[in-house]
């Protein structure tokens, strides 16, 4: 019998702890598939963050180094500088990459560090219980914006990928979503290209993934997919933001 679907080699046979409908599980699987397809499992070091995905190291079957909150890009820089042969990726949430770790991310990108950043944007702090994220939308209710995010008080949601794209060391930046089979396929393609960018030694690559958090959005998984289409992707438009890889078809 022909096997058409199986667990990627780069995922351990473990059960994800994520909530039903959470995007982390999907993105984990996509990264593992990409690592398998590129044949780099023995060279990869992953840098997971604090947050819901802190246990990512229990799922990926590659070397994993826990990072302090927001420091992923700096940790990955040290790892890559010490051992340029390894393939380093960070896995970071919106609080991690776009709030506490803004400086580390911007400067790693600007230096053109040969690392790959996977940026999960779900517009909320998940693990701590649903507080406002830097990417929380205007009028979105969270536990720390119980009346909705107010422009006059909390300011605008931050478009981190566009900021990163302005740095000259960032050569590939794309925003995708995991709220439909088509978007999931595009996300995988982007992740693959972001790893390929590092393999080719071209510079910093970042993929922002709009990812559902039904638990903290107080929605059903189906509603959360719809919300990404109807609301979230209006603030964070999907698509290629920057590609200076000279490799338009990779991935």
């Amino acid at each position: 019998m022909k096997k058409v679907y199986t667990r990627p080699k780069s995922l351990k046979p473990a059960v994800f702890h994520y909530c039903p409908g959470c995007g982390h599980s999907i993105v984990h699987r996509l990264i593992a598939e990409v690592i398998d397809e590129l044949g780099i499992q023995e060279k990869v070091v992953g840098v997971p963050p604090p947050g819901c995905s802190v246990f990512a190291y229990h799922y990926f079957d590659v070397d994993m180094l826990e990072s302090a909150h927001g420091r992923g890009a700096a940790v990955a820089t040290g790892m890559k500088r010490a051992n340029p042969d390894c393939i380093v990726f960070t896995y970071q949430g919106d609080g991690d990459l776009a709030a506490i770790g803004t400086a580390e991310t911007v400067h790693a990108a600007n230096r053109g560090e040969r690392i790959t950043a996977i940026f999960i944007n779900n517009a909320v702090y998940g693990m701590t219980g649903g507080q406002m994220a830097p990417t929380t939308l205007l009028e979105q209710k969270t536990t720390t914006t119980p009346y909705g995010r107010d422009l006059k008080v909390e300011g605008y949601p931050i478009r981190m990928s566009e900021i990163i794209a302005l740095t000259r060391g960032a050569v590939y930046v794309e925003r995708t979503a995991v709220n439909s089979p088509a978007n999931i396929r595009k996300t995988k393609k982007a992740i693959k290209k972001a790893f390929q960018t590092q393999i080719d030694g071209l510079g910093f690559a970042l993929v922002e993934v709009l990812s559902p958090c039904p638990t903290n959005w107080k929605m059903t998984p189906r509603e959360s997919w719809q919300w990404i289409d109807d609301v979230m992707s209006k603030e964070f438009p999907l698509g290629l933001i920057k590609d200076e890889t000279g490799n338009k078809n990779a991935g």
Binding site: V45, S67, R71, A74, V75, A76, A82, A103, E104, H107
Partner: peptide
Amino acid sequence: AESELAAINMVYGASAAG
């Protein structure tokens, strides 16, 4: 580095690389 925070976390990454 861009800060002492970043510098020590680079140290952390490099030390983990052995």
